[in-house]
Amino acid sequence: MARAAVSGRLGDRLRWTTARLTDRRIESDAARTLVFEVPGWPGHLAGQHVDVRLTAEDGYSTQRSYSLASAPDGESVELTVQRVDDGEVSPYLTDELAVDDVVELRGPVGGWFVWRPEQKEPILLVGGGSGLVPLMAMIRMRRAVGSRTPFRLVYVVRSPEYQLFVSDLRGDDPGLDKTYLYTRSTPAEWPRPPGRFTASELSNAGWPPDFEPTCYVCGSTGFVETAAGLLVALGHQPGRIRTERFGSSG
């Protein structure tokens, strides 16, 4: 199953292939998980992404990059896409694309914002909004290989309606600590009032810098700037902080 197929061979062309939608799941008001069947999929690392290409009848074609949400699982590949209301591509993927429709896809891409099960150091995942997606792939990879590497997840999200992977993260993952910080509104009876996250919250929910964790930070540019800056201020080495930023890629 979770066989990392990244050979590191350079010079081979990443080819476009046809991916057929086999299932779709509602993750939140605006996010859908799209399950594709991709013949010949070689597997991937947790945190990698794919390029998706859409072509109109008049030949106009455009592409977007989406993080893989799933751990490697044969020829099945999952993308979790957040709808940007005025976007060109995401509303098509979340609302129009039906089971058995096809898109073009190539990947996996990216070798930096990845977690490999061989890594033994503690891991801190800091996600903002839909920035949780590649971090979820790491959590699922950890689960798939039965890793006991200590993980801590800090998930910062506007409100419960925007929260991703709620039921999946409700399960028992021994050694995974989860902290949810809501910025606009909280679930009922939630002890922390909604608001911006602080350095002390990140410090309490994360690892001490002298544990030398690798920190993965993903979200909007503003979120990543803030969170990565706080981690540096808390004493984490910049070289141990890996970032990925989601532009508003409609």
């Binding site: 197929a5 350079l10 292939t17 074609s61 429709d101 070798g111």
Partner: peptide, 23 residues
């Protein structure tokens, strides 16, 4: 992360001609 199908010629499994996305 580099990868390709071991196809000997163009246009079979891996392809370079875009396909139209319905709608």
């Amino acid at each position: 992360m580099s990868w390709r199908m071991e196809t000997a010629c163009f246009g079979e499994w891996g392809h370079d001609m875009p396909i139209v996305s319905r709608g």
